[in-house]
């Protein structure tokens, strides 16, 4: 038996598939690839496969992360070779490593996400100004609809680590880079930041596209890759 950590993309049409559907897609993928997953013990055995930090529907992920356990001990290179032919369009393996026994499960470990928001008709100065204002505030209350349908107010400031601005590739386009908490405490969604920045120059209608560019493990102020040598060994990154 061996535990593996997988980094992959969820691009194109796959961005319209929910977290739960992706989980099931991966379970079927392993079956077709003939790589038996191990199963949990107990009344209702479930395959040991879990995904970190659910990606909101419609957002592309460039470095999503999951973890699974196989019955066989195979090299990461071999595992990648076996699953790659079964990946649907939009899913590409970026890296795979064997998880160190002492490492926390990926679901608990991954607590930070990087997003890029592509803003149309937004000057770089405007966006930069909004970024500064956001980071200067001590509180950033946003309204969110709870599961019961009622609105409630949440302060996202503690979960907002970084806001940066880059010139976009297109004319009058700006890229807004966010580093936010997606852990147990304050999960910050990109639209929360836009909401908080409304009045500072950000507008929801001008968000052309959102991409989640990476997931991290925040540890003692460092943002580490989930495949960092601290958590994984024998990491294999297939070349494009």
């Amino acid at each position: 038996m061996a535990r593996y950590r997988l980094e992959f993309t969820k691009k194109g049409s796959l961005r319209f598939i929910s977290h739960l559907d992706l989980q099931r897609l991966l379970e079927r993928l392993f079956r077709r690839a003939g790589l038996p997953l191990t199963f949990s013990a107990g009344f209702n055995p479930r395959p040991r496969l879990s995904l970190a930090a659910p990606l909101p529907l419609g957002i592309e992920g460039l470095r999503e992360c999951g973890e699974f356990e196989l019955e066989e001990n195979l090299s990461p290179r071999e595992v990648v070779g076996r699953i790659a032919p079964f990946c649907p369009p939009g899913m590409e393996v970026k890296g795979l490593g064997v998880v160190r026994p002492e490492a926390e499960p990926v679901m608990a470990a991954v607590n930070t996400a990087a997003y890029v928001l592509y803003l149309r008709d937004t000057g770089q100065d405007t966006a930069a100004n909004a970024a500064i204002q956001l980071m200067q505030k001590e509180q950033l209350p946003v309204r969110r609809k709870g599961k019961d349908g009622k609105e409630k107010e949440v302060d996202i400031r503690p979960g907002l680590y970084k806001v940066e601005v880059k010139k976009g590739e297109m004319e009058r386009e700006t890229e807004l880079f966010l580093l936010v908490d997606v852990g147990k405490n304050v999960t910050v969604r990109p639209e929360d930041v836009v909401q908080a920045g409304t009045g500072m120059g950000l507008e929801a209608e001008k968000v052309k596209k959102i991409v989640r560019s990476a997931l991290y493990v925040k540890e003692n102020g460092d943002f580490l890759s989930p495949l960092d040598s601290k958590f994984c060994q024998e990491v294999y990154r297939p070349e494009k």
Binding site: S13, F16, I17, G58
Partner: peptide
């Protein structure tokens, strides 16, 4: 994909391309 599907429930209903 760019203009419609984000605004409807279960967009994968309208996407095809399945296995």
């Amino acid at each position: 994909e760019e203009n419609i599907l984000l605004h409807v429930t279960k967009p994968a209903r309208y996407l095809g391309g399945e296995l």
